[in-house]
């Protein structure tokens, strides 16, 4: 699993940081930061949920 995020699209909803704080954070500007590009397999469910719920569809997960 590989996680990337498009910061140009990000609208700072913070959903990802709340759903999967080990993988996502928000920087001082409130935009998405990917903390772990290759998260542990047991985080797959929350990472996919974060990608699905992202209102700007700026998170991509390649399995």
């Amino acid at each position: 699993m590989r996680v990337t995020a498009d910061r140009d699209r990000c609208v700072g909803s913070g959903q990802c940081a709340m759903l999967s704080p080990e993988v996502f954070d928000q920087d001082d500007d409130g935009l998405v930061l990917v903390l772990r590009e290759v998260p542990a397999a047991d985080l797959a469910e929350e990472v996919h949920q974060a990608a699905d719920l992202c209102p700007a569809q700026s998170i991509r997960v390649d399995d």
Binding site: V11, G12, G14, A17, M18, P21, Q26, D29, G30
Partner: peptide, 13 residues
């Protein structure tokens, strides 16, 4: 919106 996002991050809230 970008000016305001930092006010409403998960951490700030």
């Amino acid at each position: 919106r970008r000016m305001l996002i930092p006010e409403f991050t998960a951490r700030r809230v």
